[in-house]
């Protein structure tokens, strides 16, 4: 996807260059500029240029306390159905048991649960404390794939990667075939029961275009979720610190989707 876009841009630049040789010189830069800018009005009526941003969310598992505030905020902000089946973001509780010495294994069984997606917080694991080898929480959301399978399978172009780094669904144009729900290897999409379209994390597009944080990041008490703009990283930006100091990994790297959402402190058991 990315590759074709740049190629097209290169080609257009060359064409523009040719035209420039014939016409007046300033037109070349004008054409280039037009390719890089696309202004639209954000929720408060200001101009917003998606080519001027590259939004990203990363997750520090060591900081997640499993309070589930993010799940709540996401549902309230984005009118996600309150039932335990539909989530744009949710939290999973992983519990890895100690191994029985007789088996010769290092680790025992891995138990993953997510009661109501973490909406009501988490009780302690059902496994007695002395049997637990390690236990932790993993927040999940759209992985913002570089090569997003969901937008590749959409037959009508109703789901797409935006220039500023989100993957969105066009609710007016989506016909509800559900291919993208099947295609997402991370289970991050669902069919909206009232709207009858696909739905997913938009990185709170209506918030980030206004300069606000996504709702889940806003309410996270420990900065387990870090959000920022790669094109405008300040010197002490938490996103910069994360990228430069943490050893982070993506989920299911073998699929070649190249998720942009990275996890620090990711356990090998997490899928």
């Amino acid at each position: 996807m990315k590759q074709t876009k740049t190629n097209r841009r290169e080609a257009l630049k060359k064409l523009a260059g040719l035209a420039g040789a014939v016409a007046v010189a300033p037109k070349t830069t004008g054409a280039e500029e037009a390719l890089r800018r696309y202004l639209f009005k954000n929720g408060v009526g200001e101009d917003y240029d998606p080519f001027d941003h590259k939004w990203l969310m990363v997750i520090d598992i060591e900081r997640c306390i499993g309070c589930g505030m993010c799940v709540r905020a996401c549902k309230a902000e984005n009118e996600v159905p309150r039932d335990p089946l539909h989530f744009r973001t949710w939290v999973e509780q992983y519990t890895i048991k100690k191994a029985d010495v007789a088996t010769g294994r290092i680790e025992g069984e891995t138990i993953v649960r997510s009661p109501n997606g973490g909406y009501d917080g988490f009780p302690p694991p059902e496994v007695p404390e002395e049997e637990i080898l390690r236990s932790f929480f993993v927040p999940k959301l759209c992985n913002l794939c570089h090569h997003s399978p969901c937008s590749q399978v959409c037959p009508v172009g109703a789901t797409f990667d935006t220039p500023d780094g989100a993957v969105l669904v066009d609710y007016e144009y989506c016909m509800g075939c559900g291919f993208c729900v099947q295609a997402c290897p991370y289970g991050c999409r669902y069919m909206h029961p009232e709207r009858h379209t696909a739905d997913k994390c938009t990185l709170c597009y209506h918030r980030i275009t206004r300069g606000l944080k996504p709702a889940c990041v806003e309410v996270c008490p420990t900065q387990a979720r870090i959000f920022g703009d790669l094109k405008h990283l300040g010197p002490d930006d938490p996103l910069r610190t994360f990228i430069e100091t943490k050893k982070a990994q993506s989920l299911k790297p073998h699929l070649g989707t190249e998720p942009r959402v990275l996890y620090a402190g990711l356990d090998k058991e997490v899928r």
Partner: peptide, 22 residues
């Protein structure tokens, strides 16, 4: 205009109302 999608969808999605003030 921007890719294999309706460019106007960006503006439409950006108009969604806020619930959390910040």
């Amino acid at each position: 205009e921007l890719g294999w999608y309706r460019a106007a969808a960006l503006e439409e999605l950006a108009q969604h109302k806020l619930t959390y003030a910040g």
